[in-house]
Amino acid sequence: MSQTAHTQTNAALHQAHSEVSGNEFLAFTLGKEEYGIDILKVQEIRGYEPVTRIANSPEFIKGVVNLRGIIVPIVDMRIKFNLGEPVYDQFTVVIILNIAGRVMGMVVDSVSDVTTLSPEQIKAAPEMGTTFDTDYLIGLGTLDERMLILVDIDKLMSSAEMGLIEEAAA
């Protein structure tokens, strides 16, 4: 009997493993909350460099930087979601995302690690309680004592609200 149980857990594990093979999340913090985004959307992580301001754009669009010859817009999520006073120092981190062929940078407070979450660990997001519109959330990831707010970064960055992409903004 114990053997059957063992096989079952094994199978379950196996199944979970194959299902979540893509579900690796990069965890980062904004204010006091911890967020996660699909690791496959992340191109690289860099320090914060001075940007060139773009006139007449929303305050959370910090400007553009030169990323090895391409011009990349930088958005500060802390300003976008009113998470305290943004500080720019040597610890400020920019996550460079590659979304729908477009490259953009996202300023966050810090990046912690990459975690693998199985579907069971991902719970549906409650209708309230986060600064993100639930439309842009995949769910909440639970990992031991931690809770990650999983953001559908694709949807968020191409949304009209961000105004980063022409079609959406128009």
């Binding site: 773009i54 007449n56 553009v64 030169n66 011009i71 953009m104 105004g163 992409i165």
Partner: peptide, 27 residues
């Protein structure tokens, strides 16, 4: 000349961007 729109939207009054000798961006 670098295209601003390849990663961003069109900005009124700006036709593109360029990279200066110090690595910074100028519009």
């Amino acid at each position: 000349v670098k295209n601003l729109e390849s990663n961003f939207r069109k900005v009124a009054g700006i036709s593109g961007a360029t990279i200066l000798g110090d690595g910074g961006v100028s519009l």
